[in-house]
Design a protein around this nucleic acid. Structure first.
Lengths: 204, 186
DNA sequence: AGATTACTTTATAAAGC
DNA sequence: GCTTTAAAAAGTAATCT
């Protein structure tokens, strides 16, 4: 009986330490990503839910913590790409994506697909582009998405191409390289999406 | 008006069987020209048939997995060739080993572009996985028939997880019905 | 700036770590 | 969970000319 007590305390302590570790990791990654405190709180709630529903078994704590943060960013409307999240995590991108899909399914998060427009303010400001370019890029995304060009395309690449196109249209040109770097996509992707988008806009 | 069900093409059939006889894979690897056997890597010996084109994974237990065939008939043909090869090496093989189809992968064309974002919401986010940052296809798990369908923006689809030839046709009819019901098929 | 090659996803069996 | 095998879909990426 005494051993059982000790075991329970030990397990409880270990669980408590693991939870503290996960929450501190979420905090560390959230800071590195520059997301507001509200996102860390949402991520903590998602992590605790995953813990209480026993979704961590067979997975790394860090993986679930990172996936929870990725999900929280999306839920709060300020998404980070898997690439960006992987940069501040010690878990490989592939595992983050898999774990996210798993906890998302199990917890019934039902997150809608990422809207490329949500990347525009952040990408545009790190390129020091004006509000005018941002609203033009937003318009390009809306028009080309309505014409069915978004299906299957990565939201980051789609946003990057629209920002590149908008920078040209507003005489604040950025090179494909510059835009590709902030969005973490290749110039080839920007070129491909850009061609389709200007056609959808009726230019060319 | 072309029927999407008519566009169905079987792309890959996976089946399992067994010869009811333990095998010495080291020796088999020597006697079977073209056999690949890397026990450090994987416990099965890989043997490929040219006509019909297929790949077989042969295990020490005598169990065999056949993949890559384009039809159920091809699976039987390819395995028949392997059984004969083994008999030719004086390895006793059961008369008609039972062959079980484990998975059929098919492709089809719905004939219209698809708005995957709208489809993800319409089909129900709980049954859908659509993460275009990770993969361009929308993954839809269907209950009856129990298959998984990958839907692409082009309207091309992949049906997998079925064990019967009819599964793909039933799945296409069902998905077309659901997409039409949502008013999302051109 | 092409072209080529290769990797992402789905399912599925097999034996063993 | 992983390892290997096959095949399709379409997007993205790395590498070479």
């Amino acid at each position: 009986r005494l051993r059982k007590w000790q075991e329970r305390i030990r397990t409880k302590d270990a669980g408590e330490r693991n939870l503290q570790f996960a929450l501190s990791e979420i905090d560390r990654m959230a800071s590195a990503l520059g997301v507001p405190r509200s996102v860390r709180e949402v991520a903590s709630v998602i992590y605790r839910r995953a813990l209480s529903e026993d979704l961590i078994r067979g997975r790394s704590i860090e993986g679930v913590a990172t996936a929870a943060l990725y999900a929280a960013c999306r839920q709060e409307g300020i998404p980070r790409s898997l690439d960006e999240v992987a940069e501040v995590s010690r878990v490989p991108q592939k595992e983050i994506g898999r774990t996210y899909r798993y906890i998302s399914q199990e917890l019934g998060l039902e997150l809608k697909p990422v809207d490329p427009k949500q990347f525009v303010p952040r990408f545009a400001s790190s390129l020091e582009l004006s509000e005018e370019v941002q609203s033009k890029a937003t318009e390009i995304i809306d028009v080309s998405a309505e014409q069915g060009l978004l299906s299957g395309k990565s939201p980051t690449g789609f946003a990057a191409a629209a920002i590149y196109a908008a920078s040209l249209l507003c005489n604040e040109k950025k090179t494909q390289r510059e835009v590709a770097d902030v969005a973490q996509v290749t110039e080839v992707t920007i070129r491909n999406r850009y061609q389709e988008q200007i056609e959808a806009m009726g230019f060319r | 008006m072309t029927n999407p069900a008519d566009s169905i093409e079987i792309q890959n059939v996976v089946a399992s069987t067994g010869i009811g006889q333990e095998l010495d894979l080291e020796a088999l690897a020597e006697d079977l020209p073209g056999a690949d056997f890397n026990p450090d890597n994987f416990p099965g010996l890989v043997y490929r048939t040219q006509e019909p084109k297929a790949a077989a994974l042969i295990f020490r237990s005598g169990k065999i997995v056949c993949t890559g065939a384009k039809s159920i008939d091809d699976v039987h043909e390819a395995l028949g060739i392997i059984f004969e090869k083994l008999r030719g090496l004086s390895i006793p093989v059961e008369d008609d080993p039972e062959i079980t189809v484990q998975n059929i992968v098919s492709s089809a064309d719905l004939g219209h572009n698809l708005n995957l974002n709208a489809l993800a919401i319409g089909l129900g986010l709980e049954d859908v996985e659509y993460e275009p940052e990770q993969f361009p296809g929308l993954v839809y798990r269907m209950d009856t028939p129990e298959v998984v369908i990958l839907l692409f923006g082009s309207g091309k689809i992949v049906i997998t997880g079925g064990k019967r030839t009819d599964d793909a046709e039933e799945a296409v009819e069902e998905i077309v019905e659901r997409i039409e019901g949502l008013g999302l098929l051109g």
